[in-house]
Amino acid sequence: MTVPWWDDDTGVLDRDRFGEQVEDILQRARRAQLEGHLPHGLLLVGLEGMGRELAAVELAAMLTCPENAGPWCGCNSCRRVRRGIHPDVERVAYDPDLKGTKDVIKADQVRDTIVSKVGARPYEGMARVWILDRVERQWFPPSPANVFLKTLEEPPPAVHFILLAANPGSVLPTIRSRCQTLRLPGAVALAAREGDELPELIASGEGAREFARRVRAALTEAAGGDPLALVVVSRSLPGEPWVYQAAAAAALELATSGTGADGGEGFSRLAARLVEAESRARVLNIRPERLILSCLMQWYEEAVEGAA
């Protein structure tokens, strides 16, 4: 039943990388906490591995902190939350060790890790916090969600749930309506902070912006049924490190405008894959056109499959 916390070496909890971007959410939550009206259900919306995990962990630390010191506290309790070894903070995510073929959070898992344990008071902290990773319906479908609904609706005092999703549109409405949504800054703003050349290029309207436009056009064209445009655009990539971010920004733009039969879900997955591909590319030294093409083709196949 153990779900490992985000590994240190993935860097998703790196404050230097994502601290600035989650600051706004943390400050808003802190104000609500001090005023005593922070909802017990929070839906954090942001791309996977791009700050939302850091925001969730810092919120959990802040909520359980015995010194009530606010974000980025350095006390022993907060440090243990960050290491994933605090008794009052638990992460619930798809567990590959559990039986079943679909990679979803299981109903029994929700029962064992949340519902049956939610009645106990905190062990040491000010509150108990559960972080549910990936609550879009493909990972958190109705069967586990229904087990969870009543608890999410009326948890005992001092219990908080932090739910993570990239695409709020595909979170079950019954879950979404019981949470307050907090959005992390989008991928474009993020890309501007990430790469070195990118901010300049975006500012000057050259390169990245132009490339993002071409990707967007190709995706729209392909959504009409012709995958050739995807091959063309990925063969003519600029040889720059920001291509992943620019392509992800394009996909995310389509996702947020709700393009596609699935309300943008497929585009949001594509954006997440492109961001993931970037970190893979750094490690494996693979040529970008191959990685980007495979992301685009995967999106295309899913879109075709979905339509059929």
Partner: peptide, 8 residues
């Protein structure tokens, strides 16, 4: 021991 929970 700093990783051990704070015991009530």
């Amino acid at each position: 021991p700093s990783g051990y929970p704070t015991v009530p």
